[in-house]
Design a protein around this nucleic acid. Structure first.
Lengths: 344, 344
DNA sequence: GCTCTGAATGTAAACGATTACATTAATCTA
DNA sequence: TAGATTAATGTAATCGTTTACATTCAGAGC
């Protein structure tokens, strides 16, 4: 009900009988002010309930002490783990995180540029897909004054000047596919994310490369989009199950979609891995809990987050763009129960 | 490499040969300025790559066009759904959301107060537990000048002046327990969240009430804390399985913990629901996908988010605190396969 | 007591936008 | 065309801090 205007530094100064400069120093450089004055100011602060206006501070300092993380979905367990890594690093600095969720929509270069130029943050971590990812983003990037680091999503070569941290998605997907092949599978389907998602493209590329190398053909209709979520994958899986040349294994570009597949397969009265094998990607915390437990590729999510954040802070503190060497972290095949030899 | 200082309105004005006021008007009230001038300014904006400094705008306007959502965990699928509801409402206003994650830690009254007075946002949505939740928060709340709405977590009666939107957790938990009882279970355990979590307390209360009404006793060691996550629940479940008087059903305060239980039960060579029934709470998207699919209480998560946001914006726009009637939304028992009659 | 020195405090400019009010330009009316 | 009216633009104050610089103060040494 009160709706009191909040006290400003001026009112504190008045009550304490000092200048606003002294109040400011009491807060930011307490040892520059005499004990006696300081206690008087402290009392005034307490009396008024004063707290600095952070917006005014940011404005004056030209620094927000905020970093922005642009992520595809706050509900995705994989990205949540990446965030944990980021948070652990941010905790060592006096910074807050603001999260910008794209909801798995690919951001346009304009949107990225608009965010970067808004000065709402001192640095940016992009975990989301950007499209088109060519010269436009590059152009925006050159105008930007805050550092940017990309995590997870690789970006086309022309953007190599923006630093990134990620796994080798192509190699990991090849490895996953090879594992299915080594189990005796010859008919392997792939469910990808949105066609604009680069990280999905890389995984698809790895899948195709492995199939090609093993001289296995990919039938029309074996590669489908699943929108990176349960529903989309279930739908795609439904189509695969009706395919005249039904695959014996399905490789999903992320775990969430693998869960969707397993659900759909069960719903159709078939079982994993007896009738169909399912392979995921990410190793989210639900993968192990599934029944059967999901065989998948583990990404060092937390570590990715940490490294991304460390690079960003290094850049923020040095006042320059971070060096642009991409950091490639190791992935790992996690064998569980969702893949078995096909009945022939 | 460029590290160009970003253009300010002053530079644009200079290039266009007008005053800064005119530039400002071009952006905010374009029809107040002559066509000819406008195009000249537009050109200058393009040339300089100018974009308003949002911090300066917020500062001057005394309005950030940002709302802050304080949530326990961005990885929790339930809260993610609530966020979807919030986002859908926010999309209709010219606002951004900034997310403050507490990582399931209970916030102290001081932290809540600090956030509220920081003026980083025009309004706040609290989805997280606050403790202690008595007069201290109330005191802070009286000083606040931005509106606050609480979602999901109920708050002790003394805080009734802060509006909230949630389900009737006591009734829902009673209903869940009744369902187990009606299936013939007499030995029912409960896994709660942190002891400071109010919403969990309400659910525990409902469980105890139902047991009491059915004249069933709750043995020492049947009520455990599971930290609202998979691991914590698995650990708690392990203890329950070793209990001398082993329960035939476990009711978990959220689905995440139910998944942890199911995993642990399977790991110990037992099966759900044949050996032990498991009941969850929330109906997250993974509940249906589990094998067996999880029987649980569905909360209207998205709707909660929408209602919370609507109330908040109403308050922001009217410049007053929202009215304090709590809004209670309906829950629903979702029967799937994880609960069956006990053998014996 | 006087000067000197360093510490403590004060003064005022700046950050980049918005906006009330003043001024100038364009248009209309008679 | 003068005068009135309205539209377009400019001037300058303002928001709440921080901080360079100026000033004042307290104590030391003589």
């Amino acid at each position: 009900m009160s709706q009191l205007a909040q006290a400003s530094i001026k009112q504190v100064a008045e009550i304490a009988g000092v200048s606003i400069a002294t109040v400011s120093r009491c807060i930011n450089n307490p040892d520059q002010v005499r004990e006696r004055t300081r206690t008087r100011v402290q009392a005034a602060i307490l009396e008024t309930g004063y707290s600095p206006n952070t917006i005014a501070q940011s404005f004056r300092r030209g620094r927000t002490n905020v970093i922005m993380v642009v992520m595809p979905s706050i509900g995705d367990p994989f990205f949540t783990d990446v965030m944990q890594g980021i948070r652990s690093v941010v905790a060592d600095h006096d910074y807050s995180i603001i999260i910008n969720e794209t909801n798995f929509n690919t951001m346009t270069a304009e949107e990225v540029g608009a965010i970067m130029v808004s000065r709402q943050a001192d640095g940016f971590i992009l975990l989301a897909s950007i499209f088109p990812f060519g010269n436009e983003v590059l152009a925006k990037a050159e105008k930007r004054s805050q550092p940017v680091v990309i995590g997870c999503e690789t970006i086309s070569a022309s953007l190599a000047d923006i630093p990134s941290v990620h796994i080798d998605n192509v190699a990991a997907a090849r490895e996953a596919t090879d594992y299915l092949i080594s189990n005796g599978h010859k008919k392997i389907a792939f469910i990808s994310g949105q066609s604009t998602s680069l990280l999905t493209k890389d995984r698809e590329f790895g899948y195709r490369a492995a199939m090609h190398k093993a001289q296995l053909s990919i039938k029309e209709g074996w590669v489908l989009e699943g929108n990176l979520n349960i529903e989309g994958a279930a739908k795609a899986c439904g189509k695969l199950l009706k395919h005249p040349d039904r695959p014996t294994a399905i490789f999903c570009a992320n775990d969430e979609m693998a869960l969707g597949c397993m659900h759909e397969i069960k719903r159709k009265g078939l079982s994993v891995p007896e009738d169909i094998s399912v392979m995921g990607f990410d190793d989210i915390r639900y993968a192990e809990v599934m029944n059967p437990a999901l065989t998948t590729i583990a990404q060092p999510a937390r570590q990715i987050g940490e490294r991304v954040a460390v690079r960003l802070f290094k850049a923020i503190e040095s006042g320059s763009q971070p060096n642009n060497q991409p950091v490639i972290l190791p992935h790992k095949l996690i064998v569980r129960q969702s893949v078995a030899k096909p009945v022939s």
